[in-house]
Each structure stands twice: as structure tokens, then as C-alpha cells.
Nucleic acid binder design. Structure first.
Lengths: 226, 226
DNA sequence: TTCATAGTTCGATGATAGTCGAACCATTTG
DNA sequence: CAAATGGTTCGACTATCATCGAACTATGAA
């Protein structure tokens, strides 16, 4: 009947294959131009423009103009979380777009989710920080303990800059491959950025895959162990 | 970009208005027959049969035959959680199917989510049980404390029967109206059932609305206070 | 200014998919 | 058994919408 939010409208936006490809591409966290997204999805620029307009109107994308370029990114972490939830359903129903291959394994091990680390490494990181008492969970909220505060600063992250902003510092995000939470929020983003800056991890330019260097793996395990 | 689960397939299933109506109707937790769902969505039985077949094939619905009737229900709590996530997006984008009315307010106060209590009453219940130390949260997991175990039994719930089954007893589920968690899982279901048995609450036959009696409200507040 | 690139708008086309009538199975009831 | 109800399958119709060519605007470079 006619009560509740219009779920069909949003779902139909995501349900078009080309638009789903665009959204999946944007799950990598980088803002992409209309041309890049068109190329990514294998369609012309006119068609892409139409799709992007609908996605923006539906509140799934945000866009900012920069010169003659128009950069698109996911509107919020909630959008990313919903996409992950849909991926979970697709997996459990056995609907993969491709046979599980090497790329699939890499995705499960470590990938970018919007702007933070997901996959096995992501959930291990979350679990490790909680285990060391640096993160404290209460209901569905997460926050840094005093020790965690100190740890984050020592790791080279400007925590004051994060807390100054309105966006939540710590947030949980559910994994389609692991079925466990990993750390989102501005701290989740800052940690992944720091991993990159330290040369621990590199993002693939084309996909969501994150690859860790030998040094990175060692450092990562050190983090978990304390 | 052919990596990852086929999100478009699942989303397009939900994105068809008639199917979305059916899924929303099933969020009330009751299993419904094909005819009932057809009537609910305002279409003929032939069309409904086609839609239901697709939803089942997509892993969103489960069906069981009983005599000459065919009862449909949501396939899992994950499906319900994903639908709630989509509702959250639709709300934040301002896409309601109807103007917020009295029914909307009732839905926000107390409603059925799949098989357990959601809305303000749902999140208050969850928060109250955690506050009294009866429920313990760790990461995204929830479990009963020793005191909680005793409390549940004293409340008249056959806890042994719940734990004997494979399904998780405690589980968190996110609310689109409250943006907080409430209690799902077999215990969440059992609690709502018990509320009904005690005459505390009654479900509306047609919608997801749950209405509490005066006695129910008093008892409910007593639960939270301890 | 002239050229080039990025993006939008419009209109025509074509394919996908939702819809229902009609005929068909299956189960229950009289 | 026959009648009735619940549900499925098939085929034809129709509407929606993604797609792209063509023309247009806007920003940047030479």
C-alpha cells in the first residue's frame, strides 16, 4: 500500500546495470568525471549525462564542478553501506557477475569501501583495534578510548582536524564478503590514507583492490599485535 | 568493470513498484498468499505470479506450499535489513510516497520489522535492555548476559527452544526512522510475540503498525526501568 | 578570436519488461 | 464424481526507458 518511504524509486535507480556499474566504480572512493564514468560503463557521454542526472536527483550522488570538469562521488556513507548490503544479498543468492577469479580473491582480502579499508584486512583492523582497547563499541556506536586517541596521533594522524568537522569520526560499516563490521568514518578514511602515505598499501587505479607491500603487511600485523 | 556481485540484478528486482509493494507488505512479518499479495499490490493473479517467481529466484523470498495455498515470506533478516537501508536512503532524499500523515507517525513510533519490533519503541527496548546490563554488545554482535538469560526466561520465553535452532538468537537491525539499532534475531521475534500474548501490543492486520495498549505501555516502561 | 574539450538537451529508435485474457494444472469441497 | 478456488503458463499488447546522433553551451588553450 502507500505507507512508508518510496523504496522502489531508489532501488530502480540502482537497478539499471549501467548506473550500478557507475555506483560500484564510485565505491572506490575517488571522485570521477562524467567522461570517466561513461568510459567505465562503456556508453556514450550523452547517455552517461542522463544517468548521472537521475542519480543526483535521487540523492545518491553529489557533484562538484571544477573548471570544465564535473566530478561525481557517492552522496554519503549511507549510500555506500546500502550498496554493500545489496552486494551481500547478491552474493548469498549466488549472483556474481563473473566466476570467482583471482580478482575476486583480492577483493575479498582488501578493498576500498567508499573511502576506507574493507575486506578481510578491514575487519581484522577493526577487530584488532577493539581487542587492544583502542576502540570502544557501545550499541552500534564506536569511539576512541583515551589510549586510542593517543595511538592515532602517534600514528601520524591529525585527529584535531578530524574532530573539528561535523562528520562522525568513527563509524561501523558492514562487509559483504566478511559479514562483519569494519571501521568507516573520517578516521577510517584517515587510516587508509596514512597506510598509503607510509607506502604500506596502494590502491589500484581501476578497481577497488588494495594491495599491501611486504613492509605494509609487517607494519599492519604490528598494529594488531600492539 | 565486471568485478563483484551483481548488485543491479537484485536492485532491479526491488526497483519495480509492484514488487516493492509486495516486499514492503511482507516486512510486516506475516507470510502472505499469492492472492493476498496480488490484492495488496492491485494487480491480477497472473501478474503477481510472475513477480513472485522472480523474487523467489532472486533469493529475496521463500515460499512454502500449504494445501492449495502458497505462502510467501522474506527469505532472511538480511533482506529485511537491506530494505530498511533503502528506506533510509529514500527518506533522506525526501522521497516519501505519501505526505507524512498520522499513519506515518504511528509507523515511526512502533512498527513490525520482518518479525520483531522497530521504530522508537524498538530502539528504546534495545537501549533499555543494554542499559540494564541484560544485553551485552561487542563489536556488531549482541548476546544475553547471565542476568539477561534469567530475565528472558522469567518473562515467559522458552529460551532453550530458541538456542536449539541454528538461527542467531540476538542480532542488530538498523532503523530507517530512528537511525539506531533495534533487536532482531529469534529473541527479537519472541519478545514481540510475547508482547502480543500478554495483550500489551497488537499488530495491524493490513499495515506494519503496532499499537500498544495502556497496560502494554505501563509494562513496557517497567521493562526499561527494571 | 579560433579551436578543442567537457558536458547538456532534444528527438527518434528499439528493446526490455510489465500487464492481462485465455487456457491450463492442482487441491479442496460437496 | 463434479464444481470451485488457488495458482501457473502462454501469448499478444503496450509503455517505459535506455541509447545514440545531432545540435548546442561553456570553459580552457593557443
Amino acid at each position: 500500500m502507500k505507507d512508508g518511504p518510496d523504496i522502489a524509486y531508489v532501488a530502480s535507480l540502482i537497478g539499471e546495470p549501467v548506473r550500478a556499474n557507475m555506483l560500484t566504480a564510485l565505491m572506490a572512493g575517488r571522485a570521477l568525471t562524467a567522461s570517466e564514468l561513461a568510459h567505465e560503463a562503456g556508453i556514450t557521454l550523452q547517455t552517461a549525462s542522463s544517468h548521472l542526472g537521475k542519480l543526483e536527483q535521487g540523492g545518491l550522488l553529489r557533484q562538484r564542478k571544477q573548471g570544465r570538469h564535473k566530478y561525481f562521488s557517492l552522496a554519503s556513507g549511507e549510500v555506500a553501506a546500502t550498496l554493500e548490503a545489496l552486494m551481500g544479498l547478491a552474493v548469498s543468492a549466488g549472483h556474481l557477475r563473473t566466476r570467482p577469479g583471482p580478482k575476486d580473491a583480492a577483493l575479498r582480502e582488501a578493498r576500498v569501501c567508499y573511502n576506507h579499508l574493507a575486506g578481510e584486512m578491514g575487519t581484522r583492523l577493526f577487530g584488532g583495534l577493539v581487542g587492544r582497547g583502542l576502540l570502544v563499541t557501545q550499541d552500534e556506536d564506536v569511539r576512541l578510548s583515551a589510549a586510542g586517541d593517543e595511538f592515532v596521533r602517534a600514528f601520524g594522524i591529525d585527529l584535531d582536524a578530524l574532530t573539528a568537522k561535523r562528520a562522525p569520526v568513527c563509524k561501523q560499516c558492514l562487509d559483504w564478503s566478511e559479514r562483519r563490521s569494519h571501521l568507516a568514518g573520517s578516521l577510517g578514511r584517515a587510516l587508509l590514507d596514512r597506510f598509503e602515505a607510509l607506502g604500506w598499501a596502494t590502491r589500484d587505479g581501476k578497481s577497488r583492490v588494495v594491495t599491501f607491500s611486504a613492509k605494509g603487511r609487517a607494519g599492519f600485523e604490528g598494529l594488531l599485535a600492539g
